[in-house]
Nucleic acid binder design. Sequence first.
RNA 1: GCCGAAGUGGCGGAAUGGGUAUACGCGCUGGUCUCAAAAACCAGUGGGGGCGACCCCAUGCCGGUUCAAAUCCGGCCUUCGGCACCA
Length: 821
Amino acid sequence: MAGAYDFKAVEKKWRERWNARDLFRVGEDSAKTKRYILEMFPYPSGDLHMGHVRNYTIGDVVARFNTARGFNVLHPIGYDAFGMPAENAAIARGVHPADWTNKNIKTMHEQLKLLGISYDWGREMITAEPEYYRWNQWIFLKFYERGLVYRKEASVNWCPACETVLANEQVEAGVCWRCGSDVEKRQLEQWFFKITDYAERLLNDLDLLEGWPERVRTMQRNWIGRSEGAYVDFAIAGTTEKIKVFTTRADTLFGATFFLLAPEHPLVDELVAGTGREAEVAAFREEVSKETEIDRTSVEIEKKGVFTGRYVVNPVNGEELPIWLADYVLMEYGTGAVMAVPAHDQRDFEFARRYGIPIEVVIQPEGEEFKAEEMAEAYVGDGRMVNSGRFDGLWKDEGARAVTGWLKERGEGDFAITYRLRDWLISRQRYWGTPIPMLYCEHCGVVPVPEDELPVVLPKNVKITQMGGSPLKQVSDFVNTSCPKCGGRARRETDTMDTFVDSSWYYLRFTNPKNDRQVFNSEKVSYWSPVDQYIGGIEHAILHLLYSRFFTKVFYDMGLVKVVEPFTNLLTQGMVIKDGAKMSKSKGNIVDPMDIINRYGADTARLFILFASPPEKELEWSDRGVEGSFRFLNRVWRLVEENATAIRRPEREMGDADNALLRLAHQTVKKVGEDIDSFGLNTSISAIMELVNGMRDYNEARGDQANPAVVKEVTERLILLLAPFAPFISEELWETVGNKESVYHVSWPSYDPEIAKAPEITLVVQVNGKVRDRISVPADISEENMRETALASETVRRYTDGKKIVKVFTVPGRLVNVVVR
RNA sequence: GCCGAAGUGGCGGAAUGGGUAUACGCGCUGGUCUCAAAAACCAGUGGGGGCGACCCCAUGCCGGUUCAAAUCCGGCCUUCGGCACCA
């Protein structure tokens, strides 16, 4: 295709050829080493945005590069197609969520093809199709069999805007992760996955994930929040009944002056009955229940509570402690009950001061003596135990162990570990999700749907309103069924699954997406898993990545997979921003990828996005920068056209300029390969640009005298290096220089270290650490020669004459530093 | 408040097992071509000084270690993320 760079024609031509040949299809091949490259699949919200383009382009470079290097590369794509936006669209515009979703998928599929991403299109999956979500249901049943699914009534997070419950991970700083509404608390009976059973393994195995950013590992570690401490039993005064608390500070047990229960604690009614404080306590509980998560967990808000009229007995000294309810005690953590030690816990301190409860110091640091009445805040540091009977004198940590051990002997406590991680609430009171495969039989109670009756198909004829409650409840055909056990009347569960369930295992399904007999084929999943390189946004640092790790571990225990971690290496890409802010409709700073593709082509869009910033960092959008990338591709185009002519000229002997260009080409091959491996995609492109600059200088200097063999070799190398970044133009140019085969199947070029080696280096000469001269010397110069050359330099002499040379430092092949006095 | 990351030209960014600071690109200035413009190409471009070969200063700020610091250490400042009553 001679003439100007017509990106539209070029990209269309190769897109059609790739499609026709199904170029990117892969299968298992035991003769090759596999590489599984995966980008987080998109939610089909409409059009591809710049963040998607960045994500998929980065992945595509890695995939194409690894293919060129001879690996068998799995690089699939699918659509995370269940979710709220589809339902919102249905409510707003009366479209069926399925139709809305499918239309969006179609658009995004086309756009991904326009971008030229090398996906194995035969593996495309849509999680909203029964062929996929039936396996969600199957997994749910298997988890149920293993005791990892349970149903319980609990105080749960409720998003009033989404009209559904949320998992703990999905509440960010008290607001809904998706819509930003203040989350409320509700008492509801819901389905949970018992992720806490895996807390210890999820925590420990973070150490295996050396290919993950430390930041993400830390976030997960904090989220799991392991605490070592003790359970201690407190008897309710005047009864034999006991309440268990969890504490990490058993050393302060002698300093407990009151006792706290969460307002939701189930024992409250029973305790308060007959104390005459019923009304006051009930009013307090009512007040707390109305608070949003934000109010309740804000540190600034003053702690409040109410006395129950009852007491517990401190097991270490028999003292009676008043039982209060306090809003800062959470039912979901530990046991929902706390011993309060105001001298050594800031929250208890504030509470005690507010309600006039005594404060007693039981830990004293060396060289200081705290007096309860003088303290302005709790003392939480180290020190020795005081006022603690036989334990006096022990340091904080040994004291905690000693007290716990002593309680354990007496049967009043034990060592314990708790986690901040809560079980994963997966029920959603929404329509557009996977139906939970459970039945409620009038006689048998809760009954799982038998495996051979899957899938429980999501009915299409549903009225979706914003009225709240599961829309499926209204579909009597769906709800009313018979019990598989007794044949009697039963009704189906009408809640659907959290859509994070869908994305917790899709990467394994890609190894065998069309399998209608098994969730995955064991050979295929063994061949491809784990994912070698996973790429996506940091916003999933906890949510999706933690859930996926949990699923993989359960699958491992089930014998379904042989790996304990799903993603060996993780790259968290940075956001695309414009004018310093995240692109968003409300700010009006959105750049539509399709505009860029229409104006400059996909290759330019890809190149700019990769060149403007390293993948993990934010990318500041720049229209000028895009033009620069487009100019570069035009330069490459003209250069290759020019060289295609030069290649046909008669042979000639190698000269210095030829060797120099060849050297540059080999150096560039080395650098580009190394940089892609370490995700220095911006620097690999700059290296390619330098090669192009070198080639241009060569052509200008040599004119008709150019060496055809050198030109051919260097031009071909250039095209091969460019191919992962700008695949369309590379295909075309590859053809221009006379090749028939698709560049996709051509091996990555090798480099010869001998050719890449420079015959001369620049010797930097410093005097007292300041650069004074730069001298070109042979690369293999000895240290002795370096020293001599440096001292002989005229510039250097000006600084050394009349001075005493104290010492001369040499760095082989680089630098000499002369120290004078 | 706690944890983490990052501060380099006018801008995006290079260079960290200490050793040529500012690669590559954008922008800007001048030039070639043109009736003119665009495109393309060529040259220049951290700041300051000198007629000059050159010199001084500069990687958020202040100190330190070293022959040598963007890079290591200590202390600040700023920005951005995450967590946020977890007993």
